Simulated assay, not measured.
Amino acid sequence: MKSIVVLPAADQVVIAPKSVGSKILISKQLCTEWMDVMALDSLLSHAAFRCACVIGSHFNRHSGQAFLTLETLARTLQVCERTAWTASKELERRGYVIIKRREFGIGTRKTASGAKIEFRAAGGKGVANIYLPAYARAPVATSNANKNFAARCDLLWERSLQSASSKVAAKCKPTLTSSSKKNPLPAKEPIAGNGLGPLMPIIFADIGDALYRSWFSKASIISESEETLYIGFESRFFCNAVTAKFGEKLLGWCQIMDPQLESVQLVDLSKKLEG
């Protein structure tokens, strides 16, 4: 005999009828600025950005919501449902969408004894979830979105233009520097490798070439969780010295790259090599 297990109900959604002349929560300009921030986010995958484009095309400008099933999302993106689910989870983790999962999906589960039971679960197959545009996990319609988007876009754009390499072409003669006779010191070699990715130009622009080469040239980003960034250094000495020398400044640099980060942990890579 089959039994029905009812899981705790999710937040119920009440859709009120739209009145004539109701306020527009998500304008086309606001939706475009929301897309601009994601387009400049180098840490956002291409699949997640395409997923955001599909979700954005379904927003109701009066309610600020989009109703999409996983099957519709995958079919529009022309990918499998697993890829569509992963992309939407990445958008949610990065704070660009808020997903309200609706219930009434019917599934089948086996118990320890092997018996099959049916249950009602949130976001079941064929059930449309509710998507809301967000910035830093706050709904766009209720946040100071215009100023936040503009500031974030400017920051991301300036960061993309920053480069630690020389801006003089290989075959061009510089016109604003002294000749080699007046300045016999050889030019510094470009920094080999970039294990810090988008964090590198942020640190470089703040502390300059000499300090960056001394402390961060061999550092690398190991992994990143939702709230913590893990940076590896070649020895315990570097971990302790960077912590003492830069302290909370390091966390500030990382938060420029990702505002959702709350902590930074330095990892001694020499221990992994010894192990």
Rank of each mutant, 00 (worst) to 15 (best):
G107M: 06
V79Y: 06
F49G: 15
T108N: 06
E90P: 04
T83L: 01
S143N: 05
A66C: 03
S57Q: 15
T108W: 02
A141K: 08
G56H: 13
E118V: 10
A128T: 01
A122K: 13
G107K: 08
T83I: 08
G105N: 00
H58K: 12
R50P: 00
S143Q: 04
T111A: 10
A115E: 06
L73Y: 06
F49L: 15
N129H: 03
L77Q: 01
A121S: 06
G105Q: 00
R101V: 03
L68R: 02
G95Q: 05
T111C: 10
N146L: 05
R109Q: 12
A112R: 07
G123A: 14
I130Q: 14
T72C: 00
I99C: 12
E81K: 13
N146F: 02
S88P: 11
E118I: 08
T142C: 04
S143D: 01
E92C: 02
V97I: 13
R120C: 07
T76P: 07
W85Q: 10
K110Y: 07
N60E: 14
I99G: 04
S63I: 09
Y96Q: 14
F104V: 10
N146Y: 04
R102N: 15
A115W: 00
S63Q: 07
L77W: 04
S57I: 11
L73C: 04
F59A: 05
T69N: 02
S113V: 12
K89I: 00
Y131P: 15
A145Y: 11
G123W: 11
K110R: 09
A122R: 10
L68D: 02
N129R: 01
L73V: 07
C80T: 08
E90K: 09
F67H: 12
G64V: 14
T86S: 08
I106T: 09
H46M: 08
I98C: 15
H62K: 06
E90C: 05
K100I: 09
G123R: 12
